[in-house]
């Protein structure tokens, strides 16, 4: 069975539903505290997928995800590199995505090329957004999906890049996994469709292998029909966020187990 490490501790807070998502996707899950990895009580190499759930690690102090990224990099860098090299998968949702870009594991590992900064409105927002999956993306997690409707819940979700070269690379190399769009599926910069002012309406990206994936919206927030804001109006059949987790587990079953 595919083994998923759900990272917990230090203010991570979407761990239960993220674990639930992977279980529904037929994976075996284990909640592992950051410090259990640091003390080597638990070893990253025993897992196929690492999930860094959403939350407020270290209270978002010194900017969201920064301190956890540093903690992992300072104490676990070799293990993380080995994990990536051995073809395993990583997902970072919301705060987890912020960790991945600040570490950096996304979009590439050399130098930080992108970041997630304060929403243009200057505030935390909880609302649902329409998302279009980039069909040219290498992302394993979004395979076979064309559109999604998911909640965002963040104050620092505006995706920006260091310079035009990075932006070009994201487009050219298929690293953009999903983008905010309107109800009809047209990618747009307009609020509230693009809820935070992200460049090119980018909501999630992957690395060049397609195995490391970070996104601001919460797929684990839509595991059941009743999570949809308008399910009482008959607008939902089932939890659409689950597909993302299924994709990863299926990939791991085929390639890693």
């Amino acid at each position: 069975m595919v083994k998923v490490l759900i990272l917990v501790g230090y203010g991570i807070n979407c761990d239960y539903e993220t674990e639930h998502a992977f279980r529904l996707a037929n994976a075996e899950t284990e909640r592992v505290h950051v410090n259990e990895l640091i003390t080597r009580e638990k070893n990253l190499e025993n897992y196929d997928i690492m999930a860094i759930p959403g939350g407020f690690s270290f209270g978002d102090d010194l900017s969201a995800g920064k301190v956890l990224a540093n903690k992992m990099k300072t104490n676990l860098h070799d293990e993380v590199m080995e994990f990536v090299k051995s073809g395993k998968l990583i997902i970072g949702v919301c705060n987890g995505f912020q960790v991945l870009v600040k570490y950096p594991l996304l979009p590439s590992m050399e130098k930080q090329e992108a970041t997630l900064t304060f929403n243009d409105c200057g505030r935390f927002l909880d609302r649902w957004v329409y998302l279009r999956i980039n069909e040219k993306s290498r992302c394993i997690w979004t395979r076979g999906i064309t559109q999604l409707y998911l909640p965002i819940r963040h104050g620092e979700g505006k995706f920006v890049v260091k310079d035009e070269n990075v932006r070009k690379k994201l487009h050219d190399e298929g690293l953009i996994a999903l983008q905010y769009c309107d109800k009809q599926g047209n990618i747009t910069d307009e609020f509230p469709w693009n809820p935070n002012g992200s460049i090119d309406s980018i909501a999630g990206i992957c690395d060049k292998t397609g195995r490391i994936f970070g996104l601001m919206p919460h797929p684990e927030g839509y595991l059941y029909k009743t999570n949809h804001p308008r399910w009482t109006r008959g607008e939902s059949e089932k939890g659409e966020g689950l597909k993302i987790f299924r994709n990863a587990v299926e990939y791991a079953e085929e390639n890693l187990v």
């Binding site: 807070n13 239960y16 909880d126 909640p151 999570n227």
Partner: peptide, 13 residues
């Protein structure tokens, strides 16, 4: 209400 995360933990109905 928009500034309050009202869905974390996945149980929002």
């Amino acid at each position: 209400q928009r500034q309050y995360d009202h869905e974390v933990q996945g149980g929002s109905v």
